[in-house]
């Protein structure tokens, strides 16, 4: 799977750690640059009647702020810049990774990247929760049920809480990996059938059409997974902010 390979471009070793600037790092920089430049350029007209590009930025602003408000309440808006950045970084990584011809590297198709993001969210939830509620934060693991039930429920709650960063990371990683693998597999079918000659060459149109359909689906998934990542972050933040409070 050549498209997932990480190759060093500029070797860099600090304190025994290999921190080389790789093609993955390059694409992270591209994602950051495209995202920052696109959003800033689009937002810069600041017209009273927004331009089309300005509308995109304002709609995404309202989209993310509404998402936070519905999942974590008004207090969650303190984390708006972080959630917005997270959403945009994942979205641009996913979408840029889908463009053909430029041989992109999909940053979010690497488990370590998604896990690092998810683990950061996990740590942030714990830090915010402890800072806000002190040790009372751990009441998160004890729902209001009869004491006997707690014997069963507390371990379940703890395990589900600890598995959050894993599920968050794996969901995004697996979706990206599966999508790109599927496109790769259909691609090899097209090449294999087309070069086989005869009737098989004619049949090769079918996996080709499948690729077209899957690419469309992958664009949907690219957006959807960014949304899921962001809204789960909001839901976890809601736990830290409001414990069992519902919004």
């Amino acid at each position: 799977m050549e498209q997932f390979e990480v190759r060093p471009l500029l070797p860099l070793h600090i304190g025994g750690l290999d921190l080389s600037f790789t093609n993955a790092s390059l694409w992270m920089c591209i994602v950051t640059a495209v995202c920052a430049i696109f959003l800033t350029m689009a937002a810069s007209p600041r017209k009273l009647v927004p331009t089309r590009m300005q509308s995109i930025t304002e709609l995404s602003y309202m989209f993310v702020s509404d998402m936070i408000r519905s999942a974590a309440g008004t207090e969650g808006l303190k984390f708006f810049p972080f959630v917005f950045t997270l959403f945009m970084f994942v979205l641009f990584s996913n979408v840029i990774g889908l463009f053909p011809l430029i041989h992109p590297f999909t940053v979010t198709s690497h488990i370590i990247v998604t896990f690092a993001l998810a683990f950061f969210v996990f740590l942030m939830v714990i830090v915010v929760g402890l800072a806000r509620h002190g040790l009372h934060f751990f009441s998160l693991f004890a729902p209001k049920v009869p004491v006997v039930m707690l014997l069963v429920l507390v371990p379940i709650e703890v395990v589900s809480f600890l598995s959050r960063p894993i599920s968050l990371a794996v969901r995004l990683f697996a979706n990206m990996l599966a999508g790109h693998t599927m496109l790769y597999v259909f691609g090899t079918f097209v090449i294999g059938l087309a070069t086989a000659g005869g009737a098989l060459s004619v049949i090769s149109i079918m996996p080709f059409l499948a690729i077209v359909a899957v690419v469309a689906l992958e664009f949907l998934i690219a957006f959807l997974q960014a949304y899921v990542f962001a809204i789960l972050t909001c839901i976890y933040l809601n736990d830290a902010l409001n414990l069992h409070g519902h919004h």
């Binding site: 990480v6 290999d18 080389s20 600037f21 994602v31 940053v107 690092a116």
Partner: peptide, 13 residues
């Protein structure tokens, strides 16, 4: 590759 990935992710993000 993990240290490099995490390092550059932290910087870019």
């Amino acid at each position: 590759t993990f240290p490099s990935q995490v390092f550059w992710l932290a910087i870019t993000f």
